[in-house]
Every structure is written in C-alpha cells, then in structure tokens.
Amino acid sequence: MAEESDGPAPAPRSGRAQSRRDEFEARAHATADDLRAQFEVRRAQIEATNERIEARAGRNLFAATAIGLGLGALLLLSLMVLKELFMLFAGALVAFTAFELASALRFAGRNVPRLPTVLAAVAAVPVAFYLGADGKWYAALAGIAFVALWRTVELVRPSHRGSAIDFWRDIVGGTLVQVYIPFMAGFAVLLTAQDGGERWVLAFIITVVAADIGAYATGLSFGRHKMAPHISPGKTWEGLAGAVVATQVAGILLTVLLLDRPWWVGVIFGLTMIFTATIGDLTESLIKRDLGIKDISTWLPGHGGFLDRLDSILPSAAGAWVLFYLFG
C-alpha cells in the first residue's frame, strides 16, 4: 500500500495561527490608538478648564493643588513623627520667605540686606522652640537690631549711601521682614514645643487652608461684590462667606475630634482663624500693591511665592497660640 503523506498538513494550522496573531495585533493597535485619542481629548478638556479657572482666579489650579499637597505631606510628617523635624521644616520656610520678601523690598528700592535678614530669621526658630516665649521676644529684638546694624555698617560704602529718609526706610523694611515672618512664624514653633501643641498647629493650619478653599470655590462660583477692590480686587464678600462656613465646619470638627474640646470652642476657633487669615491675606495684598508686584516671587507654581502661601497662616499662628493659652 502507498503511504499517506502528512507533509502539507501543518501549513493550514500555521496560517490560521498567524492570521489570529495579526488580528489580535490589529485590535491591540486600534485599542491603543483609541485610548490615546481619548487621553488627548481629556487632556485638552482639562487644560481648557484650567485656563478658564486661571484666567478668572489668577492661578494655576492643578499646580497649586500639587504644591499644596506636597507641603501638606511634609507638614504632617514633621508634626506627627518628630517635633524637631517641624523646627527644621519651619526654619526652611522662614528662610525662603524672609529672603523673597527682602528681595521684593529691594526691587521696590528699599536696601534691605538679605544675608543678615535670613540669618536672623532662621536663628529665631530654634530659639522659640527651645527657649520658649521669652526667648522668642529676645530673638525678635536681636534680629531687628542685627539687620539694622548691618545696614548701618554698609554706609561706609559709597554705593550703599543715600538720604537720611531712605536709610530709615531701609531700617523699617528690615524690621517689617523680621516682625512679619520669623516673629509670627515663631508662634507656630512655640506652640509645637508644648505638650500636645502639635495637634493645635495641625488644626489651625487645616482650618486656614479650609478658609482658603472655601473662599476660592465660593468666590469663583458666586463672587460678584468686591470686598476690598483697592487692596485686593479678586476678593469678594461671597468668597468671605464661603470661607466663614468652611472655617466653622473645620473648626468644630477639628476641635472635637482632634483637640478633644467642646464644640463651642470650635466655633470660637473657626471665627478666630477666619479673622486672622483675612487680616493676613489683606496685609500681604497691601504690601504687594505698595511694591507694585502681583506675587512676592514665582518659586511656587500656582501660588506665587512662599509668602503668598503663608500670608494667612502667619497671623493665624498668633491667634492659635492665644486660643491654646485660653483653652489648651
């Protein structure tokens, strides 16, 4: 009998397998192309939305959110792990903020020496942490004197001389930096050093951030009536109302759950924070208006500078210290 040949049989199976692979690859490419197209559409929509928000609110929402989350994570880590870490965190913020405010003053014509300004500001942080309230006051006075003396010694150089009025304006500018930044920030450092004080620091910062978010969202959606058009044209009474509601909710929840105090203390806490945060915000806006600038610096995308982020927090630290003294 003749033997049957099995040579040609594998060819059809190989052809079908190749066909299936080609079909699978075609579908995979089509799916990938479809996903890329959808991604591009979504990205365009997000960018368009962000541009509309930025045009109305004056800042990049996504960059601001990312920076805020990063700083918040560092803050939480420093407060909850080791208090000394918060001292380092606060020292870094104080250094950058003092430098950028001194630089902004120099841009406006005030000869504020930056090196002694930063050195005095940073030195005030450990003094407040380890030596308490008395040390904090002495550090503030010493810092003001140190910067003023440095500016006085600079008069030996002809390029640093000017009229007597200009000299005293420089002294006032250096004093402003020391009082506005390291002295105010020292209340948060002083509070952190107390037993349980880190919870109060966390509570007041979260409440101030809630005020900012409430004002931002409400003002963006419903803002019609300007609150202080000559100082800060973007702030509205509707935004302030949203900030009040946000601080009350955050203040009561944090006071009860985090600080273990009665709810009515939370009401006082929220009202204090919205008052100090608003004063701080308007104060920085007034400084920027007088200097003729939009942001203190451009170091933080979506925020401007460090002072643009800390303007409400700095005076609120003093308010939180008073509340801790009364109820803590």
Rank of each mutant, 00 (worst) to 15 (best):
G223L: 08
L191R: 10
L258D: 02
T247A: 07
I252W: 12
I213A: 14
T192Q: 12
H230Q: 14
D195L: 13
L257F: 15
P233W: 06
V201P: 06
I287G: 08
V249L: 15
L271T: 07
D281K: 06
E198D: 14
V249F: 13
A250M: 14
I252Y: 08
G251F: 03
G214Q: 05
G197R: 07
G239P: 11
L253C: 13
T207Y: 02
I206P: 00
I252H: 09
L282E: 04
G234Y: 05
T255P: 01
V189I: 14
A215R: 03
A203D: 08
R261I: 02
L282F: 02
R199K: 15
W263F: 14
L190D: 06
A277V: 12
V209D: 00
A246C: 09
L259K: 03
A246N: 08
Q248W: 10
G251E: 03
I279L: 15
F275G: 15
G219T: 10
Y216S: 06
D260E: 15
M273D: 01
G234H: 14
L220N: 11
T192M: 14
F222P: 00
L191W: 11
L259R: 02
L191S: 11
A203P: 06
A246H: 09
I287P: 07
A193D: 12
L220C: 03
L282S: 04
G280M: 12
I287C: 07
K288M: 12
F222L: 15
F269A: 09
I274Y: 01
I287N: 04
L220Q: 04
G270D: 02
T247Y: 04
V208F: 02
Q248T: 03
I268Y: 10
G280K: 07
L240K: 00
T272F: 01
V249T: 12
F222A: 11
G266W: 07
V189Y: 06
S221D: 01
T283P: 00
V244Y: 02
R224G: 00
V265L: 02
G266L: 10
T247L: 07
K288T: 09
A243R: 00
E284P: 07
D260W: 02
G197D: 11
M227N: 10
V209L: 15
I205P: 03
T276R: 01
G280F: 08
L254M: 12
P262W: 08
G197Y: 06
G280T: 14
I268E: 14
A277C: 11
A203Y: 03
G280R: 07
G219V: 13
V244T: 10
P262C: 06
A243N: 04
V256N: 10
S285A: 13
A203N: 05
R224E: 08
I268M: 15
H225E: 05
T283Y: 04
F275A: 15
W264A: 03
R199V: 06
V265M: 10
L282W: 05
Q194N: 13
R199G: 00
T272H: 00
E238F: 07
G196A: 12
L282H: 05
W264M: 04
V201H: 07
T278H: 07
S232F: 09
S232C: 09
A193Q: 12
L202D: 01
F222H: 01
R199H: 13
E198S: 13
K235I: 02
G270I: 08
I205T: 10
T278V: 13
T255K: 05
V201I: 08
M227I: 05
A250N: 09
K226P: 04
R261H: 08
I231K: 01
